[in-house]
């Protein structure tokens, strides 16, 4: 029995908890992509940069607060800096909409044109980020590092395997749940949220019933900016802030949005978790789990990894392709792009 408990602790420590944290980050990112898709009807390639941009301003504000001696005790200072980061990103994204996308909306341009325009935005944002904070890694996490350490866990349970719970992991999951809850409440209960969903379902009908399209678009950008900033900051807190990783996150985020069903907010969450867990499960080293649960003759010497960790992008891509082939509308049913 104890060996099964040990196997479970290994899984919890290296697969389930990291999967939940990574899944929440992807889900927040995918939710942003899906909202822009359902309102503006294009795949926003600048979303990764928006995450990086928001995280950058949160980091700058965190440093400012730290220099003033502001701290949140066990929580990272970044949490109080987050609203500032969100605000700057909201202003920036509304600015890009005004300067870039609004024109194409008036023209009723094809989605492809928006997509190419978003590539221009990627360049500009990437340049601004490198210009301000530089291309190097930045660390900004402070506060307590662990909720409980591996040693605490050993004392409590006396198992041979141990588990450490990092505070950033818990903060990531809790913040993601709160933010997602607020977004769903907003979309389902408020008048503006309902008009957004109506506009996304049927633009003409929504216009006929007097919904202001400019307001809907504005609100969509505001929500997206907040989601991107939160997702970017949480990712930076959990791993470390590297300006380049966000462009690479774009693939798993798109995969999450499409796997769940583009334009479907619930789908974005499900997709994020599916992608995160598959990436980690496929690149996880099962040696110890096998040793604890299977009979002696099946034990292995190596890592018992299905794929090396460097191929985690390949996992999200394969899932994406399989979903495209079998069910193009995604698991939860969305629009087909």
């Amino acid at each position: 029995m104890e060996s099964y408990a040990n196997a479970f602790v290994v899984l919890l420590n290296f697969l389930i908890i990291p999967g939940l944290a990574y899944g929440s980050q992807l889900a927040l990112g995918a939710l942003g992509v899906t909202i822009i898709y359902s309102v503006l009807r294009f795949s926003n390639f600048a979303h990764g940069e928006a995450m990086s941009f928001g995280a950058m301003f949160t980091i700058l504000t965190t440093w400012l607060f730290q220099s003033w001696g502001w701290h949140l005790g066990p929580l990272p200072t970044a949490i109080i800096a987050l609203p500032v980061g969100c605000l700057v990103t909201v202003i920036f994204l509304l600015g890009t909409d005004k300067l870039v996308y609004q024109f194409y909306r008036k023209q009723k341009a094809a989605p492809v044109i928006y997509m190419i325009a978003s590539v221009g935005v990627v360049f500009v944002m990437n340049g601004i980020i490198r210009f301000i904070i530089g291309p190097r890694d930045q660390s900004f996490a402070d506060g307590a590092r662990f909720i409980f350490t591996a040693r605490d866990f050993k004392e409590w349970f006396g198992l041979s395997e141990s588990l450490a719970l990092r505070s950033t992991t818990v903060i990531t999951i809790v913040t993601a749940i709160i933010v997602v809850a607020i977004v769903f409440w907003f979309l389902n209960k408020t008048r503006t949220g309902k008009s957004m969903r109506a506009y996304s379902d049927n633009e003409d009908l929504a216009l006929l019933s007097g919904i202001d399209p400019d307001k809907v678009v504005r609100v969509a950008w505001i929500i997206t900016a907040i989601l991107a900033t939160v997702a970017g900051t949480l990712y930076g807190l959990d791993k470390s802030y590297k300006p380049f990783t966000y462009l690479q996150l774009l693939l798993p985020i798109f995969a999450a949005a499409i796997v769940g069903g583009v334009g479907n907010p619930v789908g974005a969450i499900v997709g994020g978790l599916v992608i995160a867990f598959s990436e980690i499960a496929v690149t996880f080293a099962y040696t110890k789990v096998i040793a604890y649960t299977l009979p002696e003759f099946m034990h292995v010497d190596g890592l018992a990894q299905l794929l090396s960790t460097d191929y985690k992008f390949a996992v999200s891509f394969v899932i994406l392709v399989v979903v495209l082939l079998i069910k193009p509308t995604g698991i939860m049913g969305g629009k087909t792009i």
């Binding site: 693939l251 995969a255 992008f313 392709v321 495209l324």
Partner: peptide, 15 residues
């Protein structure tokens, strides 16, 4: 499939 999927899929294969 439509154009967005090709863009995303080609981005993926190149990574």
């Amino acid at each position: 499939l439509r154009s967005d999927y090709l863009a995303i899929a080609t981005l993926g294969i190149s990574e």
